[in-house]
Write a protein that binds this DNA or RNA. Structure first.
Length: 586
RNA sequence: GGGUUGAUAGCUCAGUCGGUAGAGCUGCGGACUUUUAAUCCGUAGGUCGCGGGUUCGAGUCCCGCUCAACCCA
């Protein structure tokens, strides 16, 4: 499919290169070229080179790569491996390279990412998925074929065959006896030194970003490894990977706004799933006691450095386990994934690891929400708060903050630097919106604890933050979680925060169909009152629970966020190949 | 949804008080048989995001819009 503009380019392409123009119109040709924009001119010159190749009877978009090669056709990584013994004190030496390779010719192909000519000798840097290697093209070795270099530009795909050798500066090279254009690149690559840095172009034209910025390729390689490692760890623990519908008839499994779509033949409105949870638990009812799914979910909400409308979630469910078991397993999972990433990409991993402000090497902190709130309140050094905590713990503060505390805010906010750092106006708004103590406790946690997790939970030497399991949530905020046996105001749920960011959400599953039905009804009531982030009543899910779901614990984690954490990415768009952007004509 | 910042050559960026639109890289022509951002000589390349306004004159000042980044909700 062509994306060329239908204006002047086609005229320019056939006439602008003086070397291929025929007849006396040279002056006019030059004028045409000079009238074109720089981009048009570059495209025209490169098309002209392709035409020149075609005119010789060769294909500038060849498909017969490796055919007729007398040398070993190798990936660049393999070609480099052959010359491994050719190094002396870190530099390659020609005679040692020859000895190591048995002076056997190799054939490599890849994209030209650099091209330097100094007369009768030209250096090309070639890249394929396995690595890079230099081509040392010499006029004396190539003979008449040396003129083929005129066909080439940076960005082209080429094929070269020759002996492995070393440059005088000790760089491993292929000295081609033959060199050919395989695929012509009409468009130029970004500037070689600064590369492509404009984030908008990087996201919109990821294909250029991947060529120009090798570190970007590393991140997506890491993402693939992270997903693979996660699968492998779950598979080894006897979990079964399944695929459940992404188009739902009801909203469920999370508190979020969905995307709507429509099935024409059935004339039926559908929601793109916000979570796979309720389907996976149906499978636990069906006897698939350990299941997981890694799949795309869709949430119709704002876009930020941590949110993309579509994202990839892991959910798994384990019968006969509790949320305590899952905390243990989470630590094993994260360390296991990171270890596999390190083994597969040692150099990139070392750089990421160095840049991490957190560590997963030490045991993760585990703190009940009301205790976290109590500690957070004491740290504000507000005397009234400290007293309330002494009297009644984290819950003690709830009474104090039940009404409008706007009058005391000014005084409270001056109590300490910590108190000053609290987002008081949103805190007050959030608390006043609450209908009950459970929601209030959660609001307190959100404003008094969550922003300070990084500074409150540190490694033994204080140099890094450590992950924190915040556990035992108010039941009002968790419509699918099991109530705590000892305290029915709470549910057996945790969220894991790493580097201050929410990574996982997990709980012991509610398997009492009557309790679940009551929670669904409460959700429906909230929707009737105007809340637009509620779940629907899922009759079939209640029916499933009525068949009996074994006690189970379930777990959810954003794979995008895990990748961000492990690769030190600042934005979710840096770990999603094609993040959603508004359309924009190039 | 609100705030802040930004958009100038294919890429990376300058552009003073409102007075003829600049550089490097890329491209094109040339020199060069050991380069690593090669170097040297020459040369081309612009809808200053889009649309209005003020002005003798706008890349620059004003208004609106589009897109993006960051922060907040």
């Amino acid at each position: 499919m062509s994306i060329t503009k239908p204006n002047s380019e086609s005229q320019v392409s056939s006439q602008s290169d003086p070397r291929i123009s025929q007849g006396p119109d040279t002056d006019r040709d030059v004028v045409v070229a000079s009238q074109a924009s720089a981009e048009d001119a570059i495209l025209a010159f490169r098309r002209a080179k392709a035409e020149k190749v075609r005119a010789r009877g060769e294909n500038p978009f060849a498909n017969d790569v490796g055919k007729g090669s007398s040398g070993a056709v190798l990936d660049i990584g393999k070609a480099r491996a052959r010359a491994e013994g050719g190094k002396v004190e870190g530099k390659y030496v020609e005679e040692h390279v020859r000895a190591a390779t048995g002076a056997e010719a190799v054939s490599v192909r890849g994209r030209v990412i650099a091209l330097r000519s100094s007369g009768g000798l030209t250096f090309l840097r070639l890249r394929d998925r396995t690595g890079e290697i230099q081509l040392l093209v010499s006029q004396s070795t190539m003979g008449e074929g040396y003129a083929r270099l005129d066909d080439l530009d940076v960005g082209d795909i080429v094929e070269a065959e020759g002996l492995l050798t070393a440059s005088k500066r000790g760089e491993l090279s292929v000295e081609p006896t033959s060199l050919r254009l395989v695929t012509k690149a009409f468009r130029p690559l970004p500037e070689k030194w600064h590369g492509l840095t404009d984030v908008e172009t990087r996201y919109r034209q990821r294909y250029v970003d991947l060529i120009a910025n090798p570190a970007v390729t590393d991140v997506f390689r890491a993402r693939s490894l992270i997903v693979r490692a996660t699968r492998s760890i779950l598979d080894d623990a006897d979990f079964l990977e399944v695929e459940t519908p992404t188009m739902h008839t009801l909203i469920g499994g999370a508190v979020a706004k969905p995307f709507n779509t429509h099935h024409n033949a059935l004339d039926m409105n559908l929601f793109m799933r916000i979570a796979p949870e309720l389907y996976l638990k149906r499978l636990v009812v069906g006897g698939l006691e350990r299941v997981y799914e890694i799949g795309r979910c869709y949430r119709n909400e704002g876009i930020s450095t941590r949110h993309n409308p579509e994202f990839t979630m892991l959910e798994f469910y384990q019968a006969y386990a509790t949320y305590d078991d899952l905390m243990d397993f989470t630590e094993v999972l994260l360390r296991g994934v990171d270890a596999r990433l390190k083994a597969a990409m040692p150099e990139a991993h070392a750089a990421w690891h160095k840049g991490r402000a957190y560590t997963i090497d030490e045991p993760f902190a585990r703190v009940p929400m009301d205790l976290a709130v109590a500690r957070g309140a004491v740290k504000t050094e507000i005397p009234a708060w400290a007293q309330a905590v002494t009297d009644g713990g984290g819950v003690g503060l709830l009474t104090l903050l039940q009404g409008d505390f706007g009058g005391s805010m000014k005084e409270w906010s001056k109590a300490s630097p910590r108190a000053k750092a609290i987002d008081w106006s949103n805190f007050r708004k959030g608390v006043m919106k609450c209908d009950n103590d459970g929601e209030r406790l959660f609001a307190l946690y959100e404003y008094l604890c969550e922003p300070f997790l990084i500074e409150d939970y540190r490694s033994k030497d204080g140099s890094h933050s450590i992950p924190v399991f915040v556990k035992d949530y108010p039941f009002e905020t968790s419509p699918l979680a099991r109530k705590n046996d000892a305290n029915p105001a709470l549910v057996d749920r945790f969220e894991l925060f790493v580097n201050g960011r929410e990574l996982c959400n997990a709980f012991s599953e509610l398997n009492d169909p009557e309790d679940q039905a009551a929670r669904f009804r409460a959700q429906v009531d909230k929707k009737a009152k105007g809340d637009d982030e509620t779940m629907d009543y899922d009759e079939d899910y209640i029916r499933a629970l009525e068949h009996g779901m074994p006690p189970a614990a379930g777990f959810g984690m954003g794979m995008d966020r895990l990748t961000m954490l492990l690769t030190n990415a600042q934005s979710i768009r840096d770990v999603i190949l094609f993040p959603l952007l508004r359309p924009h004509s190039p």
